[in-house]
């Protein structure tokens, strides 16, 4: 079972550092290449018969939307792994993924509202999907804010993990309620229907989705490396203070 051994090798922080150092350049390169190809395919694809060229923002918007949800699922899964198996790397993964997920969520919101302007005549029309993404963005902000507001790092890690799991339990309910809200309000604007994707548009879209997912993987790995290094520096400082005979306290960060 090669998959399992890879996971096991990655689960050891020292091995993770060694392996990720080798993988990272390839990931960055692959992300750049796939996104470049995807963008070219997107620009070369025929314009949408209704929306013209403005529909091409879809090639950034849709992958960002998909990543905003997938990354939240990763944060929740990492949090679950941390709470149940107490593996420190799971917490590093959750902590590193949250700000990047928030970034993709913001990208989705910005591109969505830019796309909305020609579509709806307004940057923001309380479209149920975009509204769900906005609430997802608040959940990300909550995760980041909770972690940075608690001085004790292990307490912060545990509480943030609980919040991530509470969030993923509530997300479907939130999604459902936002849909309900838009259906049962008198509609004042015509909403964006499910985009009927022509095969000519599908391939560039899929390529972009793969490219941005690889980009996320590279960013996540880099952020995890940074976090591990930060923790090592902190441990060294604590050890140094103790060696000097001092009484090391948990520093406020």
């Amino acid at each position: 079972m090669p998959m399992q051994t890879l996971t096991q090798r990655l689960a050891n922080p020292t091995r993770f550092m060694a392996l990720s150092a080798q993988l990272l350049p390839w990931l960055w390169g692959a992300a750049a290449a796939i996104i470049a190809i995807g963008l070219y395919m997107g620009f070369a694809s025929p314009p949408d018969y209704q929306q013209g060229h403005s529909a091409k923002i879809m090639y950034v918007h849709v992958p960002a939307a998909w990543l905003s949800m997938a990354v939240y699922a990763l944060v929740a899964a990492s949090s679950f792994g941390f709470l149940v198996f107490r593996h420190p790397l799971a917490d590093v993964s959750a902590k590193a993924a949250a700000p990047i997920g928030a970034l993709f969520t913001l990208l989705c919101l910005v591109t969505g509202s830019l796309w909305g302007k020609p579509m709806w005549g307004a940057y923001w029309a309380w479209d149920p999907r975009l509204t769900s993404v906005l609430i997802l963005f608040f959940l990300y902000l909550g995760l980041i804010a909770l972690r940075t507001s608690i001085e004790d790092e292990s307490l912060a890690a545990n509480l943030t993990a609980i919040l991530a799991i509470v969030g993923i339990v509530l997300l479907p309910v939130i999604r459902y309620s936002v849909n309900w809200n838009s259906i049962h309000q008198p509609p004042s604007v015509s909403r964006l229907g499910a985009p009927t994707v022509h095969p000519d548009l599908l391939w560039p879209l899929l390529t972009m989705a793969v490219g941005m997912t690889v980009l996320f993987a590279a960013m996540h790995m880099k952020a995890m490396r940074n976090e591990i290094l930060r923790r090592r520096v902190k441990a060294l400082r604590l050890a140094e203070v103790q060696l000097a005979g001092g009484y090391a306290r948990q520093p406020a960060e």
Binding site: I135, F138, L139, L141, G142, A145, L146, L163, V166, G167, L170, V173, I174, Y176, S177, V178
Partner: peptide, 10 residues
């Protein structure tokens, strides 16, 4: 407030 308001949406 930041944590709870999104959770209160439903």
């Amino acid at each position: 407030a930041l944590l709870m308001l999104p959770l209160f949406v439903p």
